[in-house]
Design a protein around this nucleic acid. Structure first.
Lengths: 234, 234
DNA sequence: CGGTACGTTGAGTCATATCAACCATAGTGG
DNA sequence: CCACTATGGTTGATATGACTCAACGTACCG
């Protein structure tokens, strides 16, 4: 698990550069973090932790993309969120001291730092600003989760797909050719939207006919943002 | 807004009795809370705060039941959660310093205490144990929200209705006749499950035919918990 | 070259939403 | 006290969005 070729990011520098939750730590606290953490690299497809398993710490992402999902009764994945540089994952289970309720799997090779569980509650107790940042972070995630509940409950699959595309644009951006920077399989898209793979395929090609997007293989080019917004019903 | 006939609950006593988030406060902190709070009574149907409005504080429920919901694009409610004695509401908007993203409406006459916004972050900074309790509380809510996302995305309406009934039993209990203690309209049930009112009605009467429940008006009697569990797919 | 994973398309089915009519109940005001 | 209205509950008929199943195409990889 040692990677001499990759420079291990130093917490306070990293926190500053990628705007992580650790940004308001004191120098001493950051030093301690550095001392206690373990740098881990995960290849595409690797699993950081599995639903139902106990985990002894949480991860901070330095590079790459992780998908975090739950598995339904029939084995179908539901993607809950993506973690990207600056995000922390598994903190919920760590704080509640419960087995993980999600699985985390690598989409794009990831550099991560692993921190033992105790650190989180220690920091909450020691640094009030950190505590407040953490509370706000979780609140934000809760707000998003709540919005998503009503989306899934009330919107059509078409509307949700449009919305998901917009969210991906907002979170991961598009390049100079308006191409979505994150690359997902149709099945993964379906597992975000909460629908069947075939439905995503059909709807995407409808979107293409309607000049909202262009498609070539897994690449999705956004042609008409306004149109997608209109379609997504907000 | 003064209610001489109703004794205003004293925070640390109340916290102890109904196990609220304030349970780990010091005597001094509880005293300060008492000093700053405003006791408010709301009749059935009253609105504590409205989606989109700015709120200057949060509520702790001492008695009664509040439904917290979001309104969809077409005006349909989606009930996010219920607040009952010991719960706090509106804390998310207060902490994020954003307009409310939900509406809170009274189902059963409620006694509440209203606390100005600053108190929350002050307490987080002052009392590490409170901070940790708060973090855990929000984590719990987040966990529930995430579970609900995959439920709505992957389960049938029938499964979800069974699950909702079970959740209502767990949260509000049943009386000596196995009657669900919380009373909801069919529309409200539909707005939790995320379906049409008519679907709830039809499914409930199917449940009745299957001897899972008994119905008389708004009263729901649980006849076969195990059966509902089986139906709900966990 | 065969294999594995992903993508696409078509056909058929079904659960659920929608629309519409009607009943029951309770509160209101003349 | 009764008509009036509002709200909630129920049922039936109909429409349809989305899922499932199945076949087949495509592309990359060792």
């Amino acid at each position: 698990m040692s990677h001499p070729e990759i420079p291990v990011p130093f917490c306070n520098k990293c926190a500053f550069e990628i705007n992580s939750i650790f940004k308001h730590l004191t120098k001493d606290e950051a030093d301690e973090l550095n001392y206690l953490k373990e740098f881990r690299v995960f290849k595409k497809g690797a699993v950081l932790y599995q639903e139902g398993s106990r985990i002894s710490g949480f991860y901070c992402i330095n590079k790459g993309i992780i998908k975090v999902f739950k598995t339904g009764p029939d084995g179908k994945e539901q993607i809950i969120r993506f973690a990207k540089p600056g995000d922390i994952i598994a903190y919920r289970s760590v704080l509640s001291n419960e087995p993980a309720c999600t699985t985390a799997k690598v989409l794009e090779e990831a550099y991560t730092c692993f921190f033992p569980s105790e650190i989180l509650s220690t920091l909450v107790k020691k640094n009030p600003n950190f505590a407040l940042d953490l509370v706000k972070l979780i609140c934000e995630e809760l707000g998003e989760a709540n919005s998503y509940i009503i989306d899934i409950a009330q919107k059509t699959v078409r509307e949700r797909l449009a919305e998901v595309l917009l969210k991906l644009v907002a979170d991961f951006g598009i390049d100079e050719n308006n191409q979505l920077k994150i690359s997902l399989t149709r099945e993964e898209l379906a597992n975000i939207v909460g629908t069947a793979t075939e439905s995503v395929i059909r709807l995407l090609s409808e979107f293409k006919s309607d000049r909202l997007v262009d498609l070539s293989g897994r690449k999705i080019i956004i042609l008409n943002l306004k149109g997608l917004e209109k379609l997504s019903n907000f």
